[in-house]
Design a protein around this nucleic acid. Structure first.
Ligand code: NAD
Ligand code: NAD
Lengths: 235, 235
DNA sequence: CTCACTTTGTGCATCTGTTCACAAAGGGAT
DNA sequence: ATCCCTTTGTGAACAGATGCACAAAGTGAG
């Protein structure tokens, strides 16, 4: 049994909480732009699309930054969340695979706005290498290791075809990168200590299709399985 | 007082399972292409990057489609998962906002391969309307309701700037669409019964940055709290 | 048939995350 | 100071997801 001392700042922030902090940050940024100085958990929760108790519990993992009876100071909370997420420092990102998607990502402004800087674009196609995109030259994939080392790249975005992704991933992790964002529809295998997050459009659509089918089945009094049908939905 | 019923509308299939089915499907498709006829939970689990007990439990929600001592028939399992996800029918998808990202999505082949068909591209910019992309004319956003109705669009992808997303969302839901995939960095509010899934690059990067910072802190003997640091973590 | 072997399907313990509901804390008025 | 009002921070109950471990169910050999 592990006993935790409640006073020390608990660095064990739940993964689910980490995933929501950027959401709160976005909502807070919008508020500060509208000149809002303080905000209650109720209002912030609504802006972020979550339950207010959840929001308070999430924030309590960072420390006690609210004032009872008043709420949270917007600026201060932005600072605390940013610090916790590591956004007070600058992160150099490399994009590997400069095709349709890679180009869109390279041109995307929302990147830079939060401490992420596109430091390199890499591709294997000679026709693409040398192109100037968003102020950067596309470099040859052979330069991968050099570029990572020289520019202090610590996050790599993989936007190559699926067939090339694992190979790129291997080189990138061998070069010491431990954070990868993968857009290719493959399961990457990586050494321990490397974090991979994936974005898969096709999976999202399939999940939507599943629920959509469910809704359709229901309306048409579709294939309901005997006693499976509990609990109607309408209020 | 708005009462929200916790809906167990999914014929008993846990949401976490639904999110993994497309992964299994992808692995199975690869196997069938390589001529594999049957597969054990152990092998399929490895290909999908999950634990084998979890895989078996997931599949058990669909029914008993395995043979003890043998494994699963690849073709049959593909069919069963496809049917469960609703991929045996054709889904018409509309993409609203044909900028950098919208174009990349429209040109993406991985879409079509699984029963999703891009049926319309819509934009508000007169310079973009009329462009021919991936065999489709970009239509004016004014046509939104007509296009949705005429072509039986049931899933809409929003790839407009953040400022326009809620407005587009309102029109789309008013037109009867109940499944939305949102790329804009805003929390969409929708009527009950509408599913929204979001893809947010910036959030993914922030989560990676959090963990990256954590690793860096650790190596430099940073603010580690005595006995706190024993958990090995990987992807 | 029985026996040896493989692999599924699932009960159960455990872990993680969510939500409720309220005591405690702070602000402001008098 | 004392009282009232608001809102935080959190204990505790609940809900959901994971993974171990094994009985049950199947195959195939003899
Ligand atoms: N385009 C989309 O909307 C979309 C959506 C979801 C997923 N994806 C996935 O993202 C990836 C990229 O998609 P895309 O549409 O941009 O493809 P694309 O073919 O347009 O671009 C891929 C690029 O990667 C380069 N490349 C190939 N092998 C490489 C290697 N070994 N090293 C470096 N670069 C290499 C190619 O030269 C090309 O420029 C694919 O895996 C695709 O499945 C794309
Ligand atoms: N490009 C990326 O890599 C990327 C990554 C993550 C998120 N996003 C988000 O995706 C969205 C699109 O990004 P983008 O880079 O393609 O932007 P973009 O500016 O290139 O394209 C946006 C398009 O939407 C159109 N549009 C604007 N208002 C509209 C309306 N009311 N109805 C229909 N169309 C409208 C514009 O005419 C334009 O063609 C943005 O919200 C962005 O934050 C983009």
């Amino acid at each position: 049994m592990i006993r935790r001392l409640p006073q020390a700042r608990d660095r064990g922030i739940p993964e689910a909480t980490v995933a929501r902090l950027p959401l709160y940050l976005r909502a807070l940024t919008g508020m500060t732009e509208r000149g809002v100085a303080t905000v209650s958990s109720e209002d912030l929760a609504e802006a972020a699309g979550v339950n207010s108790a959840k929001l308070r519990k999430d924030l309590s993992h960072l420390g006690s930054y609210g004032t009872r009876g008043v709420g949270y100071d917007v600026e201060y909370l932005i600072y605390q969340i940013s610090r916790e997420l590591g956004l007070t420092q600058d992160w150099a990102v490399a994009i590997v695979g400069v095709g349709n998607l890679g180009r869109a990502l390279a041109n995307y402004g929302g990147f830079v706005s939060r401490g992420f800087r596109v430091a390199a674009l890499l591709d294997s196609d000679p026709d693409v290498v040398g192109d100037r995109i968003a102020g950067l030259n596309v470099e040859h994939i052979d330069e991968l290791e050099t570029v990572i080392a020289r520019r202090g790249v610590s996050i790599v975005v993989i936007a190559t075809p699926a067939a090339a992704a694992q190979q790129v991933c291997d080189r990138v992790t061998a070069a010491g990168v431990t954070s990868i964002l993968n857009f290719a529809p493959v399961v990457l295998s990586v050494p321990d200590g490397v974090d991979v997050r994936k974005v898969d459009l096709s999976i999202e659509l399939q999940i939507l299709a599943f629920h959509e089918q469910r809704k359709a089945d229901r309306e048409s009094g579709g294939p309901v399985m005997a006693e499976e049908w509990q609990r109607g939905e309408s209020a």
